[in-house]
Amino acid sequence: MTKTNPSFLNGVPELLVLRLLARRAMYGYEIVREIQIQTKEGLAFGEGCIYPYLHYLEAEKFVRSKRREVGGRSRTYYELTANGERRLAKLSQEWNRVSTAISTLMGGQHA
């Protein structure tokens, strides 16, 4: 049994960003909007928070960035690396374990 869940809350934005980037390469604005749309406005990522996160993920080699020109606009696109895929699998597993535990507890309370 795992003693603590250090990445339980801190890892949520990281999990969301990696999950989105696993589908396709995106730029910062697109990631923020996609999180809002996919979670039906349930979660909103601060516009200013996304870039420090992306730069951190890049420094950790979980994502890599590339300048691309699409529709006449040049933007920095981020895409998942092999390291990022492994990180995503680990975070997803951790998240599933924690959310199952919480659901069980909450279910038990309601029963």
Binding site: G28, Y29, Y51, S74
Partner: peptide
Amino acid sequence: KRILCETAEHLEDV
């Protein structure tokens, strides 16, 4: 320089 570029592009997208 990179932060400023990305922020300016983000504001343009908004």
